[in-house]
Computed example of a mutant assay.
Amino acid sequence: MSGLLRPGAHRAAGVADDAAVLAALLRVESAWARALVAAGIATEAEAAQVAAAAAGVDVDLPALAVASEAAGNPVVPLVALLRDAAGDAGGAVHRGLTSQDVLDTALVLLARDAVARVRADLVVAGDALAVLARTHRDDVAVARTLTQWAVPTTFGLRAAQWLAGVGDAVARLDGLTFPVQYGGAAGTRALLADLAGPDAGHSDRAAPALADALGLTATDLPWHTRRAALTGIGDALTTATDALGVIAADVLLLGRPEVAEVREGAVAGRGGSSTMPHKQNPVLSVLVGAAARQAPALAGQLHLAAAGAVDERPDGAWHAEWPALARLLELAVTTASQAAELVAGLQVDPVAMASRVDAATASGALDTRGATGEAGRLVDLATTCWEETRG
């Protein structure tokens, strides 16, 4: 899909585009050659030669994409190119692996790096929200339930609730694991064991060595048809976009001219209209809100694919994951970056909030019994929890 239809996609450049996927695939193949040394199946010289070939192989990405159709995935044609580039060490390329091992591990690498970027921007957003919560701890505002005025609250408590949502998302991301994939042709790891022979006895070292080389988690069993690793990543990223979507929705409501309690920070060249020069549109909130509406369907696609991962190798369910995961990674990275900027620049008008409380109270439209209650204590609790969560 063109970046023209994904405003802000430049923020996620290199997250899961073709060049990033290719680089991850080559990293896996290079790391596997080193893992074969640990398993006693390849020599140090062969591993070095494969690594050099992976670093220097000339790949025509459009041509590789076309060639991928013949095998149903890009690994098969890439392995052929890499074996040619490795020369007499070509036999050590991809030895004992299957295409899904390489592509799954490459996608996990991309996901791990994307999650780290999302977390970093969530921390930026959370820190800014903590400041807002403390600054406006006692600034009274009208609370709304089912779209109608209800009782007084404080803007500090509203910001603290946003902060708690971001904290929940960070905790979900921190709970993720990023496993390598290694099962061989049908998940039995038989070929590598045969190559190692009865006297080598080191084939079980390959998966941990691969995990160590890539900074991923080793697994006892391959997960070709158990897709919880990827659905978990999708769910955690969607938890993040959900939390950010709530912030965007509230900012859009509170920033309407007839409400005018908050507004996005003004940035030169942003928010203009093609026909109405007087307008300053809340573009970041709009884009964050749009992303929050897209992410759940992408995570749902991962679950739909997981439910159809039959036999020892899925017949299309695996393939259906790729575009959904790639898009979700890009979307989450973009959205977290936009939301961090949105929150950092948010402008709050306590006077407008107070005047609305006064008017609503005078008209009898606001129940002021108990006033703001323990709002301040809840703000303190939320900001303390955030400090523990952010690390």
Rank of each mutant, 00 (worst) to 15 (best):
L5T: 13
L5E: 10
L5A: 13
R6P: 12
P7M: 14
A12Q: 07
V15C: 00
A16V: 03
L26H: 02
A31M: 09
A39S: 14
A42L: 09
T43H: 00
T43N: 05
A45V: 11
A52P: 08
L64I: 03
A67T: 08
V75W: 12
P77H: 10
A86V: 03
V93D: 00
H94P: 10
S99A: 15
L109R: 02
L109G: 10
D113N: 02
A120T: 13
V123F: 10
A130Y: 11
A133R: 13
V140M: 10
P152N: 01
L157Y: 03
Q161A: 00
L163Y: 07
A164W: 00
V166M: 08
D168K: 02
D168G: 14
R172N: 08
R189L: 09
A213E: 15
L214A: 01
G215C: 05
A218T: 15
L221R: 14
W223C: 07
A228V: 11
A240R: 05
L244N: 03
I247V: 15
L252K: 04
L252I: 00
L254F: 11
E258R: 08
A260G: 09
A266E: 11
G269S: 06
G271N: 02
P277A: 12
K279T: 02
N281R: 05
L284V: 14
L284E: 05
S285M: 09
V286T: 14
V288I: 15
A292D: 02
A299Y: 00
L302V: 04
A306G: 04
E312P: 10
P314C: 08
G316P: 09
G316V: 09
E330P: 00
E330I: 02
L331D: 03
T335E: 04
Q338P: 12
Q347L: 13
M353F: 07
A354Y: 01
A354W: 08
A354T: 07
V357C: 08
T361K: 09
G376E: 05
T383K: 12
C385M: 14
